[in-house]
Design a binder for these strands. Structure first.
Lengths: 229, 229
DNA sequence: GATCCGTCAAGAGCAGCGCTCTCGGTTTTG
DNA sequence: CAAAACCGAGAGCGCTGCTCTTGACGGATC
């Protein structure tokens, strides 16, 4: 590890500051991030930004990547902080952590999970960090099966689907019965839907106790999966 | 009903044509709809559009409203086309219709259920049509309970939540046990999540048989609700 | 120590955007 | 028939992302 040159360090600091300012703008003004406004906030001219990011989309990509990492960190930390044997407690901890992060960073969550920008195509770098939250949920089930605390039912998926899910399980290197993995995916889908409805929609505008609603709905999915109480 | 003047008729036609062209642009270019491009396609100057829509947001609102109505029509038609006594068949028909509409109109679906545009606030006119799809799902349960084909379990929600959901049930004038209504909301959330993942995400890029996956996942929610096979 | 090359911020400029206002011309209305 | 309402075109404002050129600075090299 050779010491980076002064210029390299200054440059890295600039990149970090640009991302920080951009994230601040994202939080206040929403998804339509203006490069010129970011530059203005930094006392620079808009063209100077292009020394650090070749385009606005690349800046957004950097923010998306960091967002996935931040969400993944929060989710995995919540899982690690729970009693390993308490599958249901871990499930709820992970779900709550994802929701808490989304509520704390709504604009970034919208960037990650909202409707994609038309011209924009997420690069492949984003796919691995994006899988961390659902993989954490799957990890709970894997631990449960391995530890004998979660007993998969003998349910078998109908055939065109069973091999699809089995291949998916092999791809992500998870040794779970396809039927159980499908239920885990339903739980992940539900979690995403719950958070998105709370952030974007006004569906549960009339539900004052949102924490309790969230816990109950994620608990329903824990039931569906078969996590023991 | 007095006959509308020639100008009024031509004006209504213009409004329709603007919306049609805008919808076409929406389908190709995505959510960042350009008023000037729409005007160009119509052989007009951009300022002329403002004779018909006071702002770009109002045009989008009109498109959103029509989108909700179209989705609601599709969903209700699917429900109406199924055997009234076959609760599970109706459930699947409604879910499939929503998915089919979304796949056929991805940009409009993104407009309805994607991340909201920062400055934009949906007017109250949109709330009623937006509730048609979930209300259709709830209607299946209501018919089932009324017809004696769906027997709600004795499950009771814990207290802060029970009264919330009960008030919500009263608000939408649905006489269902709160616990059952909560499960219906979970099903609706799941449906939204499934469609969004398929449209936006690349989660199930590796699931070739998407129809079967969708049916199975919505079937899981039918199980959770207790719809009889 | 002078030189040279890579890097940097700044500025001008292009095309596009939403939106406003004004100006003639047409249509409807009283 | 005159007044009022409506319409499209055009100019223009401030904004956007982005490109290109210019001049200055800094670290490494001879």
């Amino acid at each position: 590890m050779v010491a980076p040159s002064l210029r390299a360090r200054v440059r890295a600091g600039m990149i970090d500051e640009i991302k920080a300012v951009a994230r601040r703008h994202l939080a206040t003004d929403g998804a339509n991030l203006s490069l010129r406004a970011v530059a203005r906030d930094m006392g620079m001219v808009s063209s100077a930004i292009y020394r650090y990011f070749p385009s606005r989309d690349d800046l957004l990509t950097a923010l998306i990547l960091e967002g996935y990492e931040a969400l993944g960190d929060a989710v995995e930390a919540a899982d690690a902080g729970a009693d390993r044997a308490d599958l249901r407690g871990r499930w709820h901890a992970v779900c709550r952590a994802a929701r808490a992060w989304a509520l704390a960073h709504p604009a970034e969550y919208a960037l990650l999970y909202g409707s994609p920008v038309p011209g924009y195509a997420a690069p492949d770098d984003t796919v691995a960090p994006a899988q961390r939250p659902p993989m954490t949920l799957v990890g709970i089930l894997r631990d449960g099966v391995a530890g004998g605390r979660l007993h998969p039912s003998g349910e078998e998926l109908p055939e065109p689907l069973r091999s699809d899910v089995a291949e998916l399980a092999a791809l992500i290197e998870v040794d779970l019965p396809p039927a159980l993995l499908a239920r885990a995916m339903a739980g992940w889908t539900q979690l995403f839907g719950l958070i998105s409805f709370e952030l974007f929609g006004r569906i549960n505008r009339m539900l004052p106790h949102r924490d309790e609603y969230f816990d109950h709905q994620t608990g329903l999915m824990a039931d569906l999966i078969g996590l023991p109480a």
